[in-house]
Design a protein around this nucleic acid. Structure first.
Lengths: 129, 129
DNA sequence: TCTCCTCTACGAAAGTCTTCGTTGACATCC
DNA sequence: GGATGTCAACGAAGACTTTCGTAGAGGAGA
């Protein structure tokens, strides 16, 4: 039952995960072509990262085809919430509320987005009752 | 005028910054005693980290006394917002709103905190008008 | 079959992070 | 003034991250 948490993905790993979330299961070539619009990272770099991520359990690999297919082990939202919980712990003394308030400060507000957040607050409050 | 942004603090650096924000300007000894309630990190480890943080510009050092006094270069909120902007960029496609909504999800709600957030939304909306 | 292409695997190099032992400077106390 | 204790500085070790060159396996086409 030692269902240990996955490690926090590094910056490079996160950019790969974002591709996998967007595209779904993908080969190294797919990920490379998607990320490499700027031509900065080599093919084997992506390959190596995906191999390491497989060892870490961040992705799972399907080896039935010659070109292995990689898929994120954890959903986008789950990972995002984990990252937020982590940041709340490290930088906000564990307070997610403080985190939210700082995130709301210091940014350009947009009426539609604010309304969406408001509705979410209503939903949460409703559930809480 | 190349007023470059400070680097993202590492985990260890962040825990030191939190002490400096809480205590104000402090010596290595102060930080070590505060962090070392568990007796895990050695004195010279904290010293080394503070030296590196000085090089990076994360803290400033007052050397007038024998025991140098360190102070965070950037306020707590400024650093927190920088970290949030960074995470929004890396994990949320640059959308701070998505970040906020994920942060609100998946956590226990508390009426008082929700109201505080609501008031903040009102304030932002007011300014926007 | 021979050649060419794509793929995985391996390992090395450079950079960063974290840790701490050791050294020498300086102060304090007998 | 000599012993003791505290301090900053230095350097090195080990782990992790990111990068990529090279090798070798496998498939496709001439």
């Amino acid at each position: 039952m030692t269902d240990r948490l996955p490690p926090r993905p590094t910056d490079s790993e996160l950019s790969i995960l974002r591709v996998l979330w967007e595209r779904g299961p993908s080969t190294v070539r797919d990920v490379h072509d998607t990320l490499n619009t700027d031509g900065k990272t080599g093919y084997t770099t992506i390959l190596k990262l995906l191999q390491i991520m497989t060892e870490k359990g961040l992705v799972v690999r399907d080896e039935t085809e010659r070109a292995h297919v990689y898929e994120s082990s954890y959903g986008e939202q789950k990972t995002q919430r984990q990252l937020l919980a982590d940041l709340a712990e490290r930088a906000f003394g564990g307070s997610a509320t403080k985190l939210v308030m700082q995130a709301l400060f210091g940014r350009k507000a947009n009426a539609a987005e604010l309304n969406a957040i408001r509705e979410l607050l209503d939903t949460i409050e409703g559930e809480n009752r």
